[in-house]
Amino acid sequence: MLLYVHGHPFDRTMWAPQLTRFGGTAPDLRGYGDGPAASGVTPMSTFAADLAEVAGPDPVVLCGLSMGGQIAMEFHRLYPSRVRALILADTSARAETPETKGERLAMADRLSREGMAPYAAEALWKMVAPGNDEAAEHVRRMMLAAPPDGAAAAQRGRAERPDYRESLLANPVPTLVVVGSEDSYTPVAEAELIPSTSLVVIEGAAHLPNLERQTAFNAAVGDFLAGL
């Protein structure tokens, strides 16, 4: 099974181009879309346990972007025998620093207090590179539709995540890392720190290359899957 894990603050529709091309399953995460409601703190282990129920007993290929990539790595840390391969897009394997942890917790409080609209207005053109207007409109809709309490709970959980590089090295699986050349949230240098089988940089894309540069992203994924 190819199991997609969406990022923050999105929903399963972000994977529409890949579902059309490759099939698979893309659930809404807890606190997002049609997923179970969430508030307070949603630990990464809770997201991983939810995915384990969806995945079933056979090893899966996990494809996650940003927070979704971190959840995929958490799944691999907790259930390494159930992972066939990893596709990690625009994500970081490192734990938060004290500074970035504080920023993430402050953002969680802000989302609960203000709702999603101010954040969406600020973040849109960092999520998507200028010129990718169709992708930007899709991303805007997802951000505005995200439940603020669920998004805040996920941010608090992410603030406590471990460094995943040790578990990735301890239980290696085929791993494709994809990153947009213009991504300022997780730059190419950050992607290069993830233990991987291969790294693909998508030119002209920011944080969501699967939507911004669908053909190039799908080509990278298709080549990787063909090699498994």
Score class of each variant (00 low, 15 high):
A85G: 10
L29I: 03
A206N: 10
D50R: 10
G102E: 05
T91I: 00
N218K: 04
D109K: 14
A219Y: 02
K101M: 05
G24E: 09
R30D: 01
T42H: 02
D133A: 13
L88F: 01
H76T: 03
A49G: 07
N218R: 07
Y119H: 15
A106P: 00
H8A: 12
M14H: 06
A191I: 09
P195W: 06
G33D: 12
G24Q: 06
T186F: 14
Y79C: 09
P147H: 06
L65P: 02
M116Q: 14
L176P: 02
T91G: 00
Q70N: 13
F47K: 01
D133K: 07
W125T: 09
H6R: 01
E53Y: 00
E114R: 10
L225T: 05
R30E: 12
R161D: 04
D223C: 00
E122W: 13
R140N: 01
T42P: 02
K126S: 14
E182F: 11
A226G: 14
G31D: 09
P174V: 04
Y185L: 15
E203S: 13
H6W: 01
T46Q: 14
V41W: 09
E134L: 08
S184V: 15
A38Y: 07
L199H: 08
V61M: 01
V188I: 14
A206S: 15
S167D: 10
E182Y: 12
L211W: 02
P148S: 12
P187M: 08
D163E: 05
V41P: 10
G56I: 03
R110Q: 14
A72P: 03
E103P: 01
Y79I: 02
L78Y: 05
P172Q: 01
R140M: 08
G33V: 06
S181Q: 15
L78T: 06
I194T: 12
D183C: 02
P118N: 13
V60M: 11
A151W: 05
A189H: 12
A72W: 03
S92D: 12
C63N: 04
E137A: 10
G222T: 05
N171V: 03
K126G: 04
S81Y: 00
A38G: 07
A95N: 01
T186G: 04
G150E: 11
P43N: 10
V173D: 04
A37K: 13
A159C: 04
Y79R: 13
E122M: 15
A108Y: 06
L208I: 12
F75D: 05
A154K: 11
R84C: 00
L51Q: 04
E122A: 15
A89F: 00
A121V: 12
L105S: 01
M107W: 07
G102Y: 06
A159W: 03
A226P: 00
A129S: 13
A121H: 13
L225Y: 04
M44K: 05
G69N: 02
R82T: 01
L193T: 15
E137V: 08
T197V: 00
G35D: 11
S112K: 14
D11F: 01
E212S: 08
A93Q: 00
R158D: 09
